[in-house]
Computed example of a mutant assay.
Amino acid sequence: MTTLADLAPITELTTRDGTVLTVRPAFAEDEAALEAFFDLVNAEDRRFRFLAASQHVGHDQLQPLTHVDHWRTESFLGYDRKSGELVASAMLACDAKMHTGEIAVSVRGDYRGKGVGWTMLDLLAAEAQRRGLKRVISIEDRDNHAAIELEREKGFTAHGLDGDPHLVLLEKRFD
Rank of each mutant, 00 (worst) to 15 (best):
V136K: 02
R130E: 15
H145R: 06
L92R: 01
L92H: 04
A104Y: 07
A93Q: 08
L167I: 07
D95H: 00
L86D: 10
L123I: 09
L133F: 08
H99A: 13
H99M: 09
S106G: 07
L121S: 11
V136Y: 04
L167D: 04
G84T: 09
K154F: 11
R81M: 11
E102W: 11
I139T: 14
M98K: 03
D80P: 01
L133H: 03
G109T: 01
A126L: 12
L133D: 06
K154D: 06
R142H: 09
E85G: 14
L86H: 04
E127C: 11
L150W: 03
R135D: 14
G163R: 00
R142Y: 09
D164G: 12
G113S: 03
H159F: 15
G101H: 06
I148Q: 06
M91G: 09
S138A: 15
A93S: 11
R81D: 15
I103T: 11
R112N: 03
D162E: 13
Y111R: 00
L150Q: 05
L124P: 01
R108K: 12
R112C: 05
I103R: 01
A158Y: 04
K154E: 09
K114L: 14
R112L: 04
P165N: 07
A90M: 06
G84C: 09
F156T: 02
V136A: 11
S83L: 08
S106D: 03
V87R: 00
I148H: 02
A104P: 12
A104D: 12
N144R: 02
A90L: 08
S83F: 07
L150Y: 05
G163F: 05
A126K: 07
L150C: 10
L161K: 07
E127S: 15
G117N: 05
E127I: 12
D95S: 04
H159Q: 08
D122Q: 14
D162Q: 12
V107F: 01
I148C: 08
G160P: 15
R152Q: 14
S138G: 15
W118H: 13
D110S: 00
D164M: 10
S106N: 05
V87A: 03
R130P: 14
A104E: 12
H159V: 09
L121P: 03
M98C: 06
R130I: 13
R108W: 00
R108G: 04
G132E: 01
A147Y: 07
L121A: 13
A126H: 07
R142T: 09
